[in-house]
Nucleic acid binder design. Structure first.
Length: 177
DNA sequence: GCTATGATCATA
DNA sequence: ATGATCATAGCA
């Protein structure tokens, strides 16, 4: 039941991965939740992405093999979880913006900084393989159909008008309507 | 070495 | 609308 999504799932265009991640389950230890909101960050032609200026110590993992976690600290206090997409050598990652609690969740999960807190994910998990653990992403055996909404990304100043945010329409746990 | 800035959130 | 708080990046 909790078989991880294969690496081939992530080795695709970032936008496809971002959209298909909706409805998937992310788990860490006892905690788990259903992904209801994501954002795509492209490697090229995307000034908002951390990879816009190439490989650095921080962005190295995003250029690495797909299916790995990219976790970083923002505003000196919040950790954000991303999943690396695209084949190795190509930059692209998906920010997990909100999850719907499934089990073992304490606290709110309707925001990038909040869900990492609730799942117990920190920068120590940067670079870990999401097809192996300790953080795992898997598909649900049975999926209820849902509508996908698209909008501009939230909280960025560059390339702010691109429609790269995806969310489960009507879900109460998305960070915004 | 120094400084500006940021993929956020809670509070007011 | 603002403040908290610090790692990263760009530059001197």
């Amino acid at each position: 039941m909790r078989r991880p999504l294969p690496r081939s799932f992530y080795a695709r265009p970032t936008v496809e991965v971002a959209r298909d991640l909706l409805g998937k389950i992310i788990l860490h230890g006892e905690a788990s939740g259903r992904i209801v909101e994501t954002e795509a960050y492209l490697g090229i032609d995307d000034a908002a992405a951390h990879t816009a200026r190439g490989i650095t110590d921080r962005t190295r993992v995003i250029f690495g093999p797909p299916g790995h976690a990219y976790v970083y600290l923002i505003y000196g206090m919040h950790e954000c979880l991303n999943l690396v997409a695209e084949p190795e050598g190509v930059a692209g990652c998906v920010l997990i913006r909100a999850i719907e609690p499934v089990s073992g969740i304490a606290g709110a999960t309707n925001g990038p900084g909040k869900l990492t807190q609730a799942l117990g994910i920190t920068r120590r998990h940067n670079g870990c393989d999401v097809t192996r653990g300790p953080i795992v992403v898997s598909a649900l055996p049975k999926v209820e159909p849902f509508e996908i909404g698209v909008s501009k990304r939230i909280g960025i100043t560059k390339s702010a008008d691109l429609p790269l945010r995806f969310y489960v329409k009507g879900n109460p746990f998305v960070s915004r309507k």
